[in-house]
């Protein structure tokens, strides 16, 4: 058991040699690619984060610009709508006035027609009445209407009637 605590120089030398060989080979073939991969991943993540931050800021700026543009457009559209409404109002009034005038004209022409018809009707009634009067006077007076005096007398009555 006392060999437990005795350093054995052969084993010490072989261990040191083995360890240096391991450091050299493992460092070249295993740790360097792994550390490079870890560093690449870290750089990619940090560049992803910074580019995402930049994109977010740009998009915010774009949104602010678009909001302003929207406001301007809304103002313009409001103005246009107001103008269109006024135009519509004006048109309505004009149409109303022309319609009223036209109605007036139609009424006037209708009144004129009514007058003419009334005169025609009065003339017709007068002729009818004179015929009726002749018939009645014929009946009254008998058969005295074939002479000229009777004709003159009836025409005088008719013209008096016409005056009325």
């Amino acid at each position: 058991m006392e060999h437990l605590l005795e350093p054995h120089f052969g084993l010490m030398f072989w261990t040191i040699l083995n360890f240096f060989l391991l450091v050299f080979l493992l460092g070249k073939f295993a740790w360097k690619p792994m550390i490079k991969a870890i560093n690449d991943r870290e750089n990619r993540i940090s560049s992803d984060i910074s580019s995402a931050e930049k994109n977010r800021q740009e998009s915010e700026k774009l949104k602010a610009e678009m909001d302003e543009g929207l406001k301007k457009i809304k103002k313009q559209s409001d103005k246009l709508i107001k103008e269109a409404k006024e135009l519509g109002e004006k048109n309505k009034e004009e149409i109303l006035i022309t319609a009223k005038e036209q109605a007036h004209k139609i009424i006037q022409s209708a009144k004129g027609d009514i007058e003419i018809e009334k005169q025609n009707a009065i003339k017709q009634i007068q002729t009818e009445m004179s015929n009726v009067v002749i018939l009645a006077s014929e009946k009254l007076i008998g058969k005295n209407l074939d002479s000229k005096d009777n004709k003159k007398f009836t025409e005088k009555v008719i013209s008096e009637l016409e005056k009325n």
Partner: peptide, 12 residues
């Protein structure tokens, strides 16, 4: 668990 091995590591 061998003193020579750990001694070698400490020597490095």
């Amino acid at each position: 668990g061998n003193l020579s091995v750990t001694g070698g590591l400490a020597l490095t």
